[in-house]
Design a protein around this nucleic acid. Structure first.
Lengths: 223, 223
DNA sequence: TTGACAACCGAACGTGTGTTCATCTATACT
DNA sequence: AGTATAGATGAACACACGTTCGGTTGTCAA
């Protein structure tokens, strides 16, 4: 992550415009609006600079999504907190570890238990999510092997009860009395849970018996 | 403004979904996403109900604008429950990212290149290794899929040219012109490289054509 | 000079996404 | 009965908007 001052004038303008547009409308501007506001008359250049800003850690983008932008850091000048420079010691965050996720056992949900430990994570691993909403689980057993996840891995999740297509979620399947980590898709009236391993078949479940506990943000494997 | 309870079930669901989607992404959902999430399979019905909600004073719309929605009131029952979590400040470390590891291409070794970026890691992820000896590589391609590692994963390594049995190492195989991540074992005069996937067969190579670049300390996957 | 590279431009392309419309079903009121 | 009216449906339409690609320019180093 670079220093704010290392950004080009255009990139700083984009961040400032993003901030004020967001405050005014409640949703992000389009590429063309950004270009118009910052004097860039080619959408591809705006796109180019947006990618630079993502790379520098200032923005997150959802590809092929209209207005799929989000500010992740603080923009200086809006003055809340300065960014940390590259070589200085940065701040890391503590996220509670709420036990283990195990096949045939429910996920211990945040409200149920006291955290048994704290896991240290970096801001990048939360992807802009509020640390207060994040928690961690330790993977037990080889049940997640099809999801390219192994025993001992630590998964960082955001506590939530809904999900979008393509999210990897921790779900409790009532009819099977089973908890898994799967990719989540809505398929008509049902929910499709797709293992990460490309050769494995998805399973289909009724939304009524499928309760989402959280969305996986990142995975840490310690060897 | 009417009472929240005067709204239809669908309209309440829309508001709840809006709220959680907004919290998760930082921008509003589309009409089709709302429909999918609330079990409405016609965009016009969603549109219809959104207009009702505007009329009732719960949200504002910008017409002909993608995701041009904004919540204006506060949704009762929304999650406000501030879970108190300790995210105390701690020190995190910066480790250089030396490009990508790609099948059929040599690993860029630390001496060869300037780091293209820095990766922020926690002390626990280095397992006590001196940060100055550590570096990171981005995994490109699906070539490591048998090692339960996917495209986009970041591997943290300790720069070293030897390894112990059981280590996961990044090796350059001269005779195959290939770089892989494998578990390392000495087997008599040869070297056995075992993929992490239990069903896959190990390969045996001559130590002369197998140069170790580093030992994997940990893996980060960002979803 | 030559090459490499970051930054930028303009245009075209494909699709995401809001809108509109004809039609259908219920329920309630004359 | 007839007839409003609210809610729902699916298809078609038109444009908004992200993406891609072939070029151009300026800078720096060999």
């Amino acid at each position: 992550m670079k220093d704010f001052n290392k950004l080009s004038e255009r990139q700083r303008n984009i961040l400032r415009y993003m901030e004020s547009y967001l405050a005014e409308h409640g949703f992000p501007p389009t590429i063309r609006q950004i270009g118009e506001a910052t004097g860039i008359n080619s959408t591809s250049v705006v796109n180019y600079n947006l990618n630079k800003l993502v790379q520098a850690g200032y923005l997150a983008r959802s590809s092929h999504v209209a207005r799929g932008l989000r500010l992740v850091g603080q923009v200086p000048g809006g003055k809340k907190a300065g960014r940390l420079s590259v070589h200085a010691a940065a701040v890391s965050l503590q996220v509670p570890l709420y036990g283990s996720i195990f096949a045939s056992e429910p996920v211990s949900v945040p409200e149920d238990y006291y955290p048994e430990d704290n896991i240290e994570v970096t801001p990048a691993m939360l992807g802009g999510v509020d640390p207060a909403e994040a928690f961690a689980l330790r993977v037990k057993g080889e049940s997640m092997i099809d999801a390219m996840i192994r025993e001992g891995d630590i998964v960082i999740l955001r506590s939530q009860t809904t999900a979008d297509n393509g999210d990897m979620v921790a779900v409790w399947l009532e009819d099977r009395s089973e908890t898994t980590l799967k990719y989540f898709f809505r398929d008509g009236g049902r929910i499709k849970l797709q293992p990460a391993h490309p050769e494995m078949q998805p399973i289909y479940v009724d939304p009524a018996v499928c309760s989402i506990r959280g969305k996986v943000l990142s995975i840490i494997r310690h060897l």
